[in-house]
Design a protein around this nucleic acid. Structure first.
Length: 283
DNA sequence: ATGTGTTCCTGTCCGC
DNA sequence: TGCGGACAGGAACACA
């Protein structure tokens, strides 16, 4: 379920196991995911110390002592399992190797990080740390929604004149980073905006109102993910897939959670993807 | 330039 | 319980 909050939760879960530690062994079980792994990836990872774990949009970036940065994208079905560590009173044993365990990192001190991705829409690459921002996957991405560069004036400017539905505009990673199908549905419901409305036809006041809603929805989801880490809820050591209830996503035919409006959640398809919304209170 | 549809791949779920 | 089809949280790409 990797949108920005889930990726951030995975990053935070990896920090204790990875940051400051040496990758003792990297096992690469296939040549590619969405695109081929870089040449000699296993060798280039082996012996490297992880200096810092960062996140940009839905990408996890691990800066290494070798001057390279490991880029990880979870795609649709990517999962990261952590094992060989203790959290509170619980110890996560190494699981048996599983189908679609594409990359396994054995870490100094006994931790193991396993990247599993059934659909293989995920990605991994190694890039020069100094040039990370200019990597082709990162270059065109818009501002972080929780950062200072994302504000009312910016969003008004970027949506001005756009003829595409607001749903599609918010999914466009060049406009704002990290939102996916679920959180766009949640945001538009909370902001009371019809997902079919042309982005450029929404009043400045309503566009401005989207900014704090986007921030709040993402921050709440990150907080929920953080709770799941603190409470050691992931019995199998899988990071990021915390329980989080959505107000409209996947709730077709249920009453609008606004309560007062009396509407029902509808499902429509926009550019090939499901949109869930309340036609009564989203206008 | 901008907007839309297709595509990659496997797993799961639903109706028959 | 098996089988076919729809669908899935991403995003690059081709094309109008």
């Amino acid at each position: 379920m990797p949108e920005l909050p889930e990726v951030e939760t995975v990053r935070r879960g990896l920090v204790p196991a990875l940051e400051g530690r040496v990758i003792e062994r990297a096992t690469v079980n296939r040549p590619d995911l969405r695109f081929p792994f870089p040449d000699r990836m296993a060798e280039r990872l082996t012996g490297a110390r992880v200096l810092a774990l960062r996140r940009r949009s839905k990408y996890i970036l691990a800066d290494l002592s070798t001057g390279e940065t490991l880029l990880i994208h979870l795609g649709m079905s990517g999962r990261i399992l952590i094992s060989g560590v203790s959290m509170g009173a619980f110890h996560y044993d190494h699981p048996a190797p599983a189908r679609h365990d594409h990359v396994v990192l054995d870490i100094e001190g006994g931790a193991r990080v396993t990247f599993n991705d059934a659909r293989r829409f995920g990605a991994m690459d190694l890039l020069e740390t100094e040039k990370a921002d200019r990597h082709w996957l990162l270059r065109e991405i818009g501002p972080e929604p929780l950062g200072n560069a994302f504000d009312e004036d910016y969003l008004i400017l970027r949506l001005k004149g756009r003829n595409t539905p607001i749903k599609a505009a918010l999914l466009d990673q060049r406009i704002v980073a990290g939102l996916g199908n679920i959180y766009v549905c949640e945001v538009l419901h909370r902001a009371g905006i019809d997902p079919r409305k042309k982005a450029g036809a929404i009043s400045k006041r309503h566009v401005a109102g989207l900014v704090p809603v986007i921030r709040a929805v993402l921050e709440e989801a990150i907080e929920a993910g953080g709770s799941s880490l603190r409470d050691y809820r992931q019995a199998d050591g899988e990071l990021g897939y915390f329980q989080h209830s959505f107000r409209v996503y996947d709730r077709e035919d249920t009453p609008c959670p606004t309560g007062a409006c009396g509407g029902t959640i509808h499902r429509i398809v926009q550019s090939g993807r499901s949109t869930f919304f309340c036609p009564h209170c989203q206008r």
